[in-house]
């Protein structure tokens, strides 16, 4: 594997509340190459969102370090843009305004006003949302909001794009549609992506590697699986593909045999 672009270096994360310390992640070690699409999968409460927040810099590590291009990450920034699970668009801005806010902040001084407009529109085009650019977030559907969230994150030209269960709240059809969009965008931009998910099919379809977490507390990486499927991938053809079926089975076995979520009944 190529030299690590993003490195999660023996990270442990503890939360303290009222003098009680609980260890959420223990000794998580992960290296991600540039342009890779990595999914992190695990049962609820296994700390996968915590791991994403650590990479985003929204929370600090207790032990270890996170390195992006060999530089330590300890605060949030636009080089690690997040698509939030619940889209987190600002309701008082239009679709355009939400993306433009990010563009203005990240590219002020580097792009002219006209270029920033162009760039905003370009990113809305990427997610096919130019038709609704003047709508308020409350006027568009959940899938569309998530598209705008993706456009906003892409517009920051992040080194790593972080997706926090981006399609979790969507219906199956919309979800498939958005997964295709993400694949298309990843194919054309070749960006580095970390996606949190609990959907096995989604993980296999989109990822180059799947990181499987054991159950918390003190969750660690149980196994890392390479997905040896050629791109571009077609949802329909994959349904009968040997490698796909095998990969899917491995992930399911990990989640439901080796690391069953005991509390869930």
């Amino acid at each position: 594997m190529a030299r690590a672009y993003l490195k999660v270096d023996h990270v442990t994360k503890c939360f303290s509340r009222n003098g009680v310390t609980s260890e959420v992640l223990k000794n998580v070690d992960l290296a991600i190459a540039r342009g890779q699409f990595v999914s992190i999968i695990g049962h609820s409460g296994c700390g996968k969102s915590t791991l994403l927040n650590l990479v985003a810099g929204l929370t600090g590590v207790t032990q270890g370090a996170i390195l992006l291009e060999d530089r330590e990450v300890n605060s949030p920034g636009p080089d690690r843009a997040i698509v939030f699970q619940n889209h987190s668009l600002l309701p008082w801005l239009t679709v355009y305004g939400n993306v433009r806010l990010a563009v203005d902040k990240v590219f002020r001084g580097r792009k002219s006003r006209a270029e920033r407009h162009q760039w905003t529109m370009h990113n809305l085009e990427l997610v096919q949302m130019t038709h609704a650019k003047d709508k308020q977030p409350s006027e568009i559907s959940g899938g569309m909001k998530q598209r705008v969230g993706i456009a906003r994150a892409l517009a920051m030209e992040p080194k790593v794009l972080l997706l926090d269960e981006p399609f979790g709240a969507l219906d199956a059809l919309t979800r498939a549609h958005l997964q295709d969009s993400v694949m298309r965008i990843h194919a054309s931009l070749k960006n580095t992506v970390i996606m949190i998910t609990h959907d096995v099919d989604e993980a296999v379809l989109l990822s180059d590697r799947i990181v499987m977490m054991t159950n918390g507390p003190s969750a660690r990486i149980g196994d890392v699986l390479d997905v040896a499927l050629k791109r571009p991938r077609q949802r329909l053809q994959l349904a009968t593909d040997e490698t796909y079926i095998h990969t899917r089975e491995s992930v399911l076995k990990f989640l439901y045999e080796r690391h069953r979520f005991v509390e869930a009944a």
Partner: peptide
């Protein structure tokens, strides 16, 4: 909402921008 605060953090809005925007 914490989400809006997170958006502001990722964008690195300064205190004045955070106040107005």
């Amino acid at each position: 909402p914490q989400d809006y605060r997170n958006v502001a953090k990722v964008l690195r809005l300064n205190p004045f921008e955070f106040f107005t925007k």
